[in-house]
Amino acid sequence: MTIIFDGEKLAKQKELKLKQKVMAYHAKGIYPKVVAIFFHEDQASILYTSLKKQTAESLGIAYQAKEFSFASPVEEIQKYIEELNADPSVTGIIIQKPWTKKWLESVPNGDFNEWWGSLVSKIATKKSHGVNKDVDGLAPATLEAIKNGTWMQDQMVLPATARAVLSILKDYRANVDSDFSYLTEKVLIIGQSDLLGRPLYWHMQNLMQKGATVPQTFGEVCQVAVSESQVSKNKCEVKLVGKQGLAELIEQKKSLSDFRVIISATGQKNLIKGDLIADHSIIIDVGEPQGDIDLPSCLNKADFITPVPNGVGPMTVVSLMANALDLLRSFPQKILGDFNQFIVGKDLSP
């Protein structure tokens, strides 16, 4: 029988743990504060900003939102970001990434990647400002660190959706199959965005190649330590493809049955059908605004499926809040005082 994951339930459990950590912060005189930038032309961004603000404030994390327009001068937005970088009361910054299509409707001849890069690259990192404030994990420096496998040492964070997926896989191991580890399985990631596909691929690949010896303080995102011999024995693999790459696999009559874990994030309805997957698959559906999985045909074939809605979505919001707290590790002693002694060596993941 297929287990249908309950994202709301697990997210609520993690929120309770996060709230305890925030209260511990407050007891030490530390008050996490996140500032989000959003663009009023993108209705989805307005909704997401509202949901994140509601969750943050319920946990005791201050959350301030600043509205701009796609037509706002880049220099104006950059100046505001620099003000946030310099403000010691601001412990995290989010720039709500709009849909490219929506941005191009307002700036038809513009270069979205250039525009986006000119903003997100301004968020403070330890190298540029002595502290990391990139809550989303989308700044170029953060993505480069993830690719190089140094993000943990650099006290950075994974993008929230990637962290959410890893948290779900960790929960599967803890509550369903204690012998499971994605680090010894064949994993297929469909969708090559910076929000999920690429950073998740880099992270998994790095762990597999290194034998997955990871610090205990990042238990949520790294799951378990696995020896090189275990990795080699199982012939583990992580593969990243886009829609075209998936179409080529199908056209070549190569099903997805070689992969135990499939993580799909295209937003193409019913893309993954039951006849493509192996028995006992673990299917993580990150499709938006509609799911990628044809649920009826995958039921009773897959062992585990995350639905849309009520799957990865709620976990992404709580993972973002966990990121906001984890960034406090990077703050220098002069800002946090003896609070650093409180968090060093502790597992802050929810």
Rank of each mutant, 00 (worst) to 15 (best):
L249N: 03
L249F: 13
I250G: 08
I250H: 13
K253W: 03
L256Q: 08
F259E: 04
V261I: 00
V261A: 06
I262T: 02
I262K: 11
I262P: 09
G267M: 06
Q268R: 13
K269W: 04
D275I: 04
I277N: 09
I277Y: 14
A278W: 10
A278V: 14
H280W: 11
I282V: 08
I283S: 04
I284W: 15
D285E: 05
D285S: 00
V286N: 09
G287M: 11
G287Q: 12
E288M: 13
Q290L: 13
Q290T: 08
G291E: 04
D294G: 06
L299V: 01
N300K: 04
K301W: 00
F304K: 08
I305P: 05
P307A: 07
V308I: 09
G311I: 03
V317F: 07
V317A: 04
V318W: 00
V318N: 01
S319L: 09
L320A: 07
M321V: 02
A322N: 12
A322I: 13
N323Q: 01
N323Y: 10
A324H: 14
L325D: 05
D326W: 15
D326V: 06
L327R: 06
F331G: 07
P332T: 13
K334P: 10
I335M: 12
I335L: 15
N340K: 15
